[in-house]
Amino acid sequence: MKYFSLIVLFSCVLTNTATSQEKGRQPGIIPLPQQLHWLGYTIPMKNISLSDQTAWPGLKEMVANLLPLTINHAIDVEYTLEISEEPTLGEEAYSINFSNRSSLLKAGDYNGAIWHPNPESDVDP
C-alpha cells in the first residue's frame, strides 16, 4: 500500500469568523463521510476557486490557489490542513484534519509546492 500524506499549510484570518458562522450553514457533503466534525470556523477564500479535477495537476492547482491567502491576509492564526490516506482503515480511506500547527512552517515558507507524494516524506501524518 502506497503511503501518502498531503499537508497544505496556510494562514487564515479569524476575525469575523463568528459572523460568518451565523450567516451561513455548513455545506452539504455527498456522500456523507463516516465521521465528520465541523470545527466552527471558516476560512475566507476570496478569488479562489477549487478545481473539481482531482487528478494531481488539479490538486497542485488547488494548493497553488490556496497559497495566496497567506499573502493577502493579515495573519492572526496559522492553521494546517492535512489530507492523509488511512491505510490501516482501507485502501480508499482518508482523513482531513485542520489544526493549529503554526510552529511547523511560517507563512514565508509557503512559496512552491508542498506536497509529499512519497513514502520518504518527512511529514509526520
Partner: peptide, 20 residues
C-alpha cells in the same frame, strides 16, 4: 465540497473528517 459561497465570498468550512 467543504467550500461554499457565503455573502459573495467563497469560504472553506473547517472540519475534521475520517472516512472510508
Amino acid at each position: 465540497q467543504m467550500s461554499t459561497l457565503e455573502a459573495n465570498d467563497m469560504v472553506l468550512y473547517a472540519a475534521t473528517v475520517s472516512d472510508e
